[in-house]
Amino acid sequence: MIRGRVMGEVWATKKAPRLAGRKLILVAETCITAGAERPTGRVVVATDLLDAARGDTVVVAFGSGARNAECPGSRDVLVDAAVVQIVDGSSTPGAD
């Protein structure tokens, strides 16, 4: 899992059937260096079931963990990254 900031949205009408109906957002990975949260430059497209708002810090899970967020136990969703938590707080020094 990674920590990231919601930085945008992706719209698509033509989707593979196993992805249909899912909201796609752009998340910029961030890391905490020298006491401040900075983007690492990596960006991921993730599905969002939790209605993350712009600027939210979120936890993104990958692979089977992401599929479990969309549909627990299923292998039948075309998702490899999903928002699994909207972060309210963190004890890491430098995090918001």
Partner: peptide, 24 residues
């Protein structure tokens, strides 16, 4: 790797990251 969707539009929120210069 497999194509999952064809993108119609991408919107970046200005105040959340350092703009597209950082992202792309």
């Amino acid at each position: 790797a497999s194509i999952a969707a064809i993108v119609d539009g991408v919107e970046l929120y200005p105040d959340t990251a350092e703009g597209p210069a950082f992202a792309f």
